[in-house]
Simulated assay, not measured.
Amino acid sequence: MYVHVNAAVSVDGKLSTPRREQVRISGPEDFDRVDEIRAEADAVAVGVGTVLADDPRLGLDDSDRAAARREAGRPPAPARVVFDSRARTPSDARLLAGDAETYVLASEAAPTADRERLRAAGATVLVAGEEQTAPQPALAALADHGVDRLMVEGGGELIFSLFDAGVVDELTVYVGSLVIGGRDAPTLADGEGFVDRASFPELALQAVDRLDDGVVLSYAVE
Rank of each mutant, 00 (worst) to 15 (best):
Ala110Ile: 00
Leu211Lys: 13
Asp84Leu: 04
Ser63Tyr: 04
Arg80Ser: 03
Val127Asp: 02
Glu170Ser: 13
Pro90Ile: 11
His4Phe: 15
Glu202Tyr: 07
Ala141Ile: 02
Arg19Ile: 01
Glu222Asn: 08
Glu21Met: 07
Pro201Leu: 11
Leu58Gly: 01
Glu131His: 10
Leu150Arg: 00
Ser16His: 04
Asp12Tyr: 14
Arg24Ile: 11
Tyr103Glu: 06
Gly47Gln: 10
Leu118Arg: 10
Thr133Tyr: 03
Asp12Val: 13
Thr187Leu: 13
Asp212Pro: 04
Leu205Asn: 07
Glu29Trp: 09
Thr187Ile: 06
Ala138Pro: 00
Leu217Asn: 01
Ser91Leu: 02
Ala198His: 12
Ala45Ser: 08
Glu130Ser: 12
Asp184Glu: 14
Leu15Cys: 11
Lys14Val: 11
Gly122Cys: 04
Ser91Met: 00
Ala120Cys: 04
Ala220Phe: 00
Pro28Asp: 08
Tyr2Lys: 15
Ala120His: 12
Gly191Asp: 07
Val44Asp: 05
Phe83Leu: 03
Phe83Glu: 00
Pro75Trp: 08
Ala79Val: 10
Ala39Gly: 08
Gly146His: 05
Arg80Asp: 03
Val46Phe: 02
Gly214Cys: 01
Asp213Thr: 12
Glu192Gly: 10
Ala41Asn: 08
Val152Arg: 00
Pro76Arg: 09
Val215Lys: 03
Ala120Phe: 05
Leu126Ser: 02
Leu205Met: 14
Thr124Ile: 05
Glu116Ser: 07
Ser218Thr: 14
Ala97Glu: 14
Ala110Asp: 02
Ala198Val: 09
Leu158Met: 04
Thr187Val: 15
Arg88Gln: 12
Tyr174Glu: 03
Asp213Ala: 13
Ala141Gln: 05
Val3Gln: 14
Asp190Leu: 13
Glu192Phe: 05
Ile25Arg: 09
Ala87Val: 03
Pro75Ile: 10
Gly73Asn: 11
Asp99His: 13
Ala138Cys: 00
Val3Ala: 12
Glu131Trp: 03
Pro28Val: 08
Ser91Ile: 01
Val173Glu: 06
Arg57Asp: 09
Ala143Ser: 11
Ile37Pro: 01
Arg69Phe: 13
Leu158Gln: 02
Val81Met: 04
Arg33His: 11
Ile159Tyr: 06
Tyr219Lys: 06
Thr112Ser: 14
Arg115Glu: 10
Asp148Pro: 01
Ala53Thr: 07
Arg70Ala: 15
Pro137Cys: 04
